[in-house]
């Protein structure tokens, strides 16, 4: 069992899962968010190839453009 945290909410994965699959599993469109993995922004091009590790902390957020 792989336990991760998405925006501070625990989530368990039964098999190695990519960042992209985790986001899609949350019903979030890939082109609507950025991902911070363990305090580092992960460019969208790498989401398919990075598999979540036990105790990974993910933060998902969308772009804020106002000012």
């Amino acid at each position: 069992m792989i336990l991760i945290h998405i925006n501070n909410i625990p989530q368990s994965l039964t098999e190695p899962t990519s960042l992209a699959a985790v986001i899609l599993g949350q019903n979030i469109a890939l082109d609507s968010v950025a991902i911070v993995l363990n305090a580092e922004v992960v460019p969208r091009n790498r989401w398919q190839s990075i598999l979540c590790q036990h105790e990974d902390k993910l933060e998902l957020f969308s772009a804020v453009a106002g000012g």
């Binding site: 082109d31 609507s32 950025a34 460019p43 772009a63 453009a65 106002g66």
Partner: peptide, 26 residues
């Protein structure tokens, strides 16, 4: 690198509102 050009963005002050003091913080 953070938000590629095709990123969907919905948030703006005009549509979502904002408090002046929080704008001041930023």
């Amino acid at each position: 690198c953070i938000f590629p050009a095709q990123t969907r963005v919905s948030q703006s002050c005009g549509t979502q509102g904002v408090l002046g003091s929080s704008v001041g913080v930023m």
